[in-house]
């Protein structure tokens, strides 16, 4: 039996940082300059960084915590933490990787404080949250029903944190492994093993939920 190996990703919107190499390098230089000027007192330049990355930060946080009600506040906290730690930012890093690391940690801290312990990080979103996840309007996503979207989102929320974070960054945000390495500070091998395990766990969770 042959298997159909073709898949499409046309229903996913392009990433904010999906520019070509030249523009990417320009962006890095530009951001390093902004950071230097902000450190010298040009605080208003931080607005440019917030404008550029608010979509990524809010998206990653929403996918990790599953709660739109908490997303904005956590995203604000992430930017605030980044600003307060900006003197410690190492310019050889990408600002986006550094910022997403802060955002992932903010999401993790939030879930820990909400229900303390690993089990809280495996909790399902409340029904309202799951419904929200299925109700984001996007005509291009008509191929995925709201019900199925909610199922996938709920299964994702059941994964232990270390699997959820790699799957959100790799399979939802579609970041390259090198970028995720910088964000999570994990070796490539560990990262790939976690992605394989996360996908297997999610597949089994969804199969079980379909059998019920």
């Amino acid at each position: 039996m042959a298997v159909e190996l073709v898949r499409t990703r046309s229903d996913a919107p392009p990433r904010e940082d999906a520019n070509h190499h030249g523009a990417d390098a320009d962006r890095l230089v530009e951001e390093r300059l902004w950071v230097e000027l902000i450190l010298e007192g040009e605080v208003n330049l931080f607005r440019r960084l917030v404008e550029r990355y608010q979509g990524s930060v809010r998206g990653v946080i929403l996918r990790l915590v599953g709660s739109p009600a908490d997303t904005d506040d956590l995203a604000q906290q992430a930017f605030l933490r980044a600003f307060q730690a900006l003197a410690d930012f190492k310019t050889e890093l990408r600002f986006s990787s550094w910022l997403l690391r802060i955002a992932v940690n903010a999401a993790k801290d939030h879930l820990k404080s909400k229900k303390r312990g690993e089990s809280s990080l495996s909790s399902e979103p409340t029904p309202d949250e799951a419904v929200f996840a299925g109700h984001i309007e996007d005509p291009e996503d008509a191929s995925l029903s709201a019900e199925r979207r909610a199922e996938v989102h709920a299964a994702l929320a059941q994964l232990p944190w270390k699997y959820r974070e790699v799957l959100v960054l790799k399979s939802v945000e579609e970041l390259p492994y090198e970028e995720i390495q910088r964000i999570l500070e994990l070796p490539l091998t560990t990262l790939k093993i976690r992605v394989v395990r996360a996908r297997e766990m999610l597949r089994k969770l969804l199969e079980e939920s379909n059998r019920r």
Partner: peptide, 9 residues
Amino acid sequence: ELGALRTPV
């Protein structure tokens, strides 16, 4: 399906 979850917030 996971890719389709990446809708704009």
